[in-house]
Nucleic acid binder design. Structure first.
Lengths: 119, 119
DNA sequence: TTATTATTTAACTTAATGGTTAACAGTCAA
DNA sequence: TTGACTGTTAACCATTAAGTTAAATAATAA
């Protein structure tokens, strides 16, 4: 199970890589909705939406329960959080490097000035 | 050009959806590197790496300059930031909703208790 | 010049994605 | 029971993705 975490990031980012799926998530982030409601803004067939729902579900970004003939869908934020965290970690690293460089340059400039003053 | 922003998110998330490409970015987040250095941890052919580099470049997540026969590659953090921001916004919305729900439930519980005390 | 190293391009295979239409299954309401 | 509504499955098509090997280009080293 070494790379099951990796694989779930594959699925999550893959799911986010399509505007319809991001649209569905955006809609869900303001509350639960049925499949038809989620489909409304998009000019594609119902089966296409079913497939997008499947991708989101497989990625663990969305869950649903049946309520009569409609499905109530809701956002699963945990996976979204994991994806966000991955990005955040990379950026944090990078920013640390930039910060360190900046500090170094400042110190260096300080030392250069000190030297200039000494002689 | 309405959805060029959308399209660049497609590319960014799509690029993040592969473990080799995430590995490359992770490596880059601790400093610049050549293509061969980036390729080393992965058991795929050089042309495969070239393709992954292209995907990352097209997504604007990576840039490079030629230095003799090697290419020095570096992370472009702006796109990474944009992707992070998109996720963060969805989650913020959702958390607001959950917070509101929690507040509502607490208030409600308080009122219920008050009522119980009265009679 | 010749060989070596770093990287890309070309051509190809296989599998996955994203869409379609047509048909099916469950649930509700007349 | 019949019909309408919500959603899925099946079968198909076109495009893209991810890998391969073989050959090409470009820069350095011998």
């Amino acid at each position: 199970m070494v790379n099951s975490q990796e694989h779930s990031l594959d699925l999550a980012f893959g799911a986010l890589a399509h505007p319809i799926r991001r649209g569905i998530l955006a809609r869900l982030s303001s509350g639960e909705a049925s499949v038809a409601e989620l489909a409304k803004p998009f000019r594609v067939s119902a089966p296409a939406i079913t497939k997008h729902m499947r991708v989101l579900e497989d990625a663990g970004l969305l869950s649903r329960r049946k309520e009569g003939r409609r499905h109530r869908c809701r956002l699963e934020e945990r996976r979204l959080k994991e994806a966000e965290l991955w990005i955040e970690r990379q950026r944090a690293f990078w920013n640390d490097r930039l910060d360190a460089l900046e500090r170094y340059l400042k110190e260096d400039a300080g030392r250069a000035n000190a030297n200039r003053r000494i002689r």
